[in-house]
């Protein structure tokens, strides 16, 4: 049994058992939503090497669309979730086709600029409620049978959505398509010279990432019955970068760990230190970048390798590539 399979099994067991361990379910649901968001982001940053600084746009857009669909149009939750997700995907296509024309810092700036534009659209539009946001979104009945007002039901639906998104990302990474993405990350000119239409690959990766970010945002709306500007603000874009880096960029499970660490910190510290949470987050970010650049999961994996395999003459990065192929 490979280590990844073991990781999957542990993850599923943890997810199924967690609500029975006297952990507050809404907190767990928030964690899964952000874990999915971070995993989707990781597909782009960790596996394609594109740093998008506007991913909150997809997260926020989907949460508004889903909120509106459920509250005003009165659609059932599965259709509402789908509407938000599809909208985020379309948005991802539009943003992506513009942004991938540039690389590096320019790519990051274009995504940030587009996301900020969208932020002000949400601020101005009538249906979003501007500063006040969209409240009292009904949870409804999933597929007409699952009553989502029950927290336990909702928890397992959210966990299932997370697993679905997570598995999609896993499959993407480990497909031939994913191999091409990794080759783009490692050496773009060489991928071009091998005959790959790099722009198309990048765009598709961008759209998948945006769509799944949208799914995370839409799910969050159903959980909290609320869509607000926080979801679309650039702080959110920064937060997802932090989650991914802290957990381990370019690892399958890293973003999940990173998301839970950040969400837990926010939850536990909010009462004790107030706005100092931001400062503490920044501090953690600095430590992470200076001291353990591979992130929590990345460092752990490196540690295991050193203990058991000790690959001779392989740098950590090459070892990573080798590992994800396995």
């Amino acid at each position: 049994m490979s280590r990844t399979a073991l990781g999957f099994i542990l993850l599923i067991i943890a997810g199924v058992v967690a609500p029975w361990l006297n952990i507050y379910p809404t907190f767990l649901m928030k964690g899964w939503c952000f874990a999915l968001f971070a995993c989707a982001f990781n597909l782009l940053l960790g596996y394609t090497g594109l740093l998008s600084f506007g991913h909150a746009a997809f997260f926020g857009a989907a949460s508004y669309i889903t909120g509106h669909a459920l509250k005003v149009w009165g659609l059932p939750p599965e259709i509402g979730l789908l509407a938000g997700t599809v909208f985020a995907g379309v948005l991802g296509y539009l943003f992506g086709s513009l942004a991938i024309r540039r690389a590096g810092i320019y790519f990051a700036m274009i995504t940030l600029a587009l996301a900020q534009m969208l932020y002000f659209v949400w601020l101005q539009m009538k249906f979003t409620g501007g500063e006040d946001g969209l409240q009292g979104v009904p949870r409804g009945m999933m597929f007409g049978v699952i009553d989502l007002t029950n927290n336990v039901n909702l928890y397992y639906v959210v966990f299932a959505i997370f697993l679905f998104g997570f598995f999609m990302i896993y499959r993407t990474i480990h497909s031939p398509f994913g191999q091409v993405l990794k080759s783009i990350r490692e050496n773009e000119p060489r991928s071009i010279s091998l005959g790959y239409d790099v722009a198309k690959y990048k765009l598709l990766a961008f759209v998948i990432s945006a769509t799944l970010s949208g799914l995370a945002g839409a799910t969050k709306t159903v959980v909290f019955q609320l869509a607000s500007l926080t979801d679309a603000h650039w702080h959110m874009s920064g937060e997802v970068v932090l989650m991914t880096l802290l957990g381990g960029m370019g690892t399958v499970f890293g973003p999940v760990v990173g998301a839970f660490v950040i969400v837990t910190l926010q939850n536990e510290l909010a009462d004790k230190v107030g706005s100092w949470v931001q400062v503490i987050m920044g501090f953690i970010f600095v430590i992470c970048v200076l001291a353990f650049r591979r992130g929590i999961v990345g460092e752990l994996m490196a540690l295991f390798r050193n203990l058991y395999q000790r690959p001779v003459g392989l740098s950590a990065r090459q070892a990573d590539v080798k590992d994800t192929k396995a």
């Binding site: 809404t26 907190f27 006040d132 909290f224 019955q225 926080t230 979801d231 909010a270 009462d271 706005s275």
Partner: peptide, 16 residues
Amino acid sequence: ADHQNKGDVASNRARE
């Protein structure tokens, strides 16, 4: 509790 002037933080805390 501090809601940091954010609707989602407030609703989250209230629910808890």
